[in-house]
């Protein structure tokens, strides 16, 4: 049986890869490929957020009756990251590598500690709460 923890953690690694590649290309001044990679990173991240905000979090809240708990915290961190993503996108548009690299450093820290919290606490909690329905939830998220 695939767990939510495994699947979602794998998706995190997938985003990390795009992130690292975009950062490296931009640090080398390759804006053409860097921009393409950044877009892939942004889209993958946005897709991950919407799987969580659209399906995983509401279902979790429904079952636990908690709306102000960890999911709320995760949403707030998504807001932080969306703001950073927007700033990074502006830096890509202006081809400002110094600014991009400062933002990406910040993004990396926020993203990694956010992922850590999800992978070590929230996802295992959802696997526990959903139990037998975990797989069905995963299927639903993939449809997005």
């Amino acid at each position: 049986m695939t767990t939510i923890t495994e699947t979602m953690a794998r998706d995190h690694r997938h985003c990390d890869e795009f992130f690292a590649e975009a950062e490296e290309l931009i640090s080398q001044g390759d804006w053409e490929q860097g921009r393409a990679k950044f877009n892939e990173f942004r889209d993958a991240t946005e897709n991950h957020f919407s799987m969580e905000e659209g399906i995983l979090f509401p279902k979790f809240e429904q079952r636990t009756g908690q709306t102000m708990g960890p999911t709320q915290m995760m949403r707030m961190e998504h807001t932080q990251m969306r703001q950073l993503l927007a700033d990074m996108e502006a830096a890509v548009t202006h081809e400002d590598d110094e600014r991009y690299l400062g933002l990406s450093e910040t993004m990396m820290m926020v993203m990694q500690q956010h992922n850590m919290k999800e992978e070590q606490m929230l996802y295992p909690m959802t696997d526990q709460v959903f139990a037998g329905d975990a797989e069905a939830t995963l299927q639903e998220m993939k449809m997005l």
């Binding site: 636990t64 908690q66 708990g69 960890p70 915290m73 995760m74 919290k117 606490m121 929230l122 909690m125």
Partner: peptide, 10 residues
Amino acid sequence: MLNTASLSLD
């Protein structure tokens, strides 16, 4: 046991 307080930044 759900450990929710631990995710708080406050």
